[in-house]
């Protein structure tokens, strides 16, 4: 008879359990409990919160590793460089402080909602997800990992063990904006993350732009990125962005907003977030 709840202390033991059974993985619980709708879980539960090997936020020679146990609050408090400001701004918009203290960033990616707050900033950081199983460890780009609305590449015997941000992507400045119908405790209508690196002559050397809640999976907008690449980082540069740069979005009508509004709002939000990022980059440049 399978155990209905287990909280192993060793990562190896957890991976062995995953090998032999179908489990629901529990970490922060903030998606787990609401999804139950008052019912008992239909599969046994593997609580990973005692697996200290999974770790929280760590800076390594290769980049930044956000372990599976890192909460949003951990990310905010980790003293990460400016490239992570977008992620931190997203962190403080996830639900409420109460949620941020328990919910993990990794869990946000496992839940894979189209409105997952962590995805746009992590896409801008070229994040890789690390998946572990008894078969070994694999890494894949976040953009490949999420397949659709609440669908991911996580196999039944796998654990999302960490989010890895390569050193090369941990540079520059970043910004994030979330649009909702109220101030706190809100699921976004649209959200935008931007990370950019300025050259010595004050041009946009590289820029990453990602939009969430406007398609089944949050997505990078490469045409928008291309349109800004090489431009002078001056106030007003964001006005170069036009509706056609958002053609890749496929927003839907739902209770939060109609698709047409989302598409329109995303452009405004994008311009503002780019402007925020330019200001942040220039401020950083002025102080270094």
């Amino acid at each position: 008879m399978p155990l209905s709840y287990v909280r192993p202390l060793q990562l190896g033991a957890a991976l062995d359990l995953l090998r032999n059974n179908r489990w629901t993985i529990l970490a922060g619980g903030t998606d787990f409990y609401p999804a139950l709708q008052g019912q008992r879980p239909s599969t046994p539960v593997l609580d990973i919160t005692a697996l200290s090997d999974l770790g929280k936020v760590a800076t390594t020679p290769d980049g930044v590793r956000i372990g599976a146990l890192a909460t949003w609050t951990d990310v905010v408090r980790a003293g990460l460089p400016a490239a992570f400001d977008a992620l931190k701004l997203a962190a403080v918009e996830v639900g409420s402080v109460q949620i941020q203290n328990r919910a993990t960033v990794a869990g946000n990616l496992c839940n894979a909602s189209p409105a997952a707050d962590g995805v746009p900033p992590l896409l801008c950081l070229d994040a890789q997800v690390e998946l572990m199983s008894h078969r070994g460890t694999r890494q894949l780009p976040l953009g490949d990992y999420i397949l659709g609305n609440r669908r991911t590449q996580l196999a039944e015997d796998e654990l999302l063990s960490a989010i890895v941000i390569p050193r090369a992507a941990s540079t520059g400045s970043s910004a994030f904006r979330k649009l909702g119908a109220r101030r706190y405790l809100v699921i976004s209508i649209a959200m935008v993350a931007v990370r950019l690196v300025l050259s010595n002559d004050n041009r946009i050397e590289s820029i990453s732009i990602a939009v969430g809640s406007c398609s089944e999976v949050a997505t990078r907008l490469t045409t928008a990125e291309t349109s800004l690449q090489g431009q002078q980082a001056e106030t007003g540069v964001e006005q170069l962005l036009q509706a056609q740069h958002l053609a890749a979005l496929q927003p839907i009508d739902d209770i939060r907003a109609p698709a047409g509004y989302r598409q329109e709002a995303a452009l405004q939000l994008l311009r503002r977030t780019v402007a925020d990022a330019v200001v942040a980059a220039k401020t950083a440049g002025a102080t270094t």
Partner: peptide, 24 residues
């Protein structure tokens, strides 16, 4: 976790106690 009425402090930090497994 939508209303926060059940907020308690766990190790000094606010949490919605309706979303916390006591196993943790």
């Amino acid at each position: 976790g939508d209303c926060g009425a059940c907020t308690v402090l766990i190790d000094g930090e606010p949490a919605c106690s309706c979303l916390v497994a006591i196993g943790q």
